[in-house]
């Protein structure tokens, strides 16, 4: 039997630019601060093959919309996904963004970050009213005095600013900004686009 050598059909290959002097290829910025379990708020296994990092602002309506989309992505991928949330409060535009971030971090200090994070996004319209978050903190069984004190003394503001600066260095260009497997996601903040980006290895 004669063997016929056929060229294997490969996927699309990188094309040489026609006019090298004017056509450049674009690569989105990389996450400057890697995800670490000591510092980051993580859902899912730390060593999962896929990582999704979100820089978010609790008062931003687009982050509110993205909250549901991330839940869909997590439901779809389950333990294949490591999701981390970092603060990026746009304090110029959103007056309650910083205090909401501090509220979530104060809950984190007592081990209930994700519960408070979810609560804040599910009740974005109550962000100006501290009593709502405090009430929920009590419901979660947190030490309310410690919780209130840490917020009033801005104990966690330094961490939030570190998140913010790390985000700026990573090329965060607004909220929400997602990093899919370490690269900024420039597509839409919807589950379909995120899932597609996560499954395309860079």
């Amino acid at each position: 039997m004669a063997t016929v050598t056929r060229k294997r059909e490969t996927g699309k290959t990188l094309l040489e630019p026609a006019r090298k002097e004017t056509v450049k290829t674009y690569e989105p910025p990389r996450l400057a601060v890697p995800v670490t379990p000591e510092r980051d708020h993580i859902e899912g296994p730390v060593n999962a093959t896929l990582t999704l990092v979100q820089y978010g602002d609790y008062q931003c309506p687009y982050c509110g919309a993205a909250y549901g989309e991330v839940k869909k992505v997590q439901k779809e991928l389950g333990s294949k996904l490591c999701f981390a949330f970092r603060n990026f409060p746009l304090t110029n535009m959103h007056e309650f963004a910083m205090s909401a971030a501090e509220t979530a971090e104060a809950a984190a200090a007592q081990g209930k970050f994700w519960e408070m994070h979810d609560f804040l996004y599910e009740h974005q319209d109550t962000l100006g009213d501290d009593s709502k978050a405090l009430g929920y903190a009590k419901k979660l069984g947190l030490d309310a005095q410690r919780f209130e004190r840490e917020i009033a003394q801005h104990i966690h503001q330094k961490r939030i600013k570190e998140d913010f600066n790390g985000g700026v260095r990573s090329g965060v260009n607004g909220t929400p900004t997602f990093y899919v497997n370490g690269f900024r996601h420039d597509g839409e903040a919807v589950s379909k686009a995120l899932l597609k980006a996560l499954s395309t290895r860079w």
Binding site: Y26, P28, P29, A32, V168, R169, S170, G171, V172, N173, G174, R184, D186
Partner: peptide, 8 residues
């Protein structure tokens, strides 16, 4: 359509 951010 890509907002470049401030890192550069």
């Amino acid at each position: 359509g890509v907002n470049p951010g401030a890192d550069g």
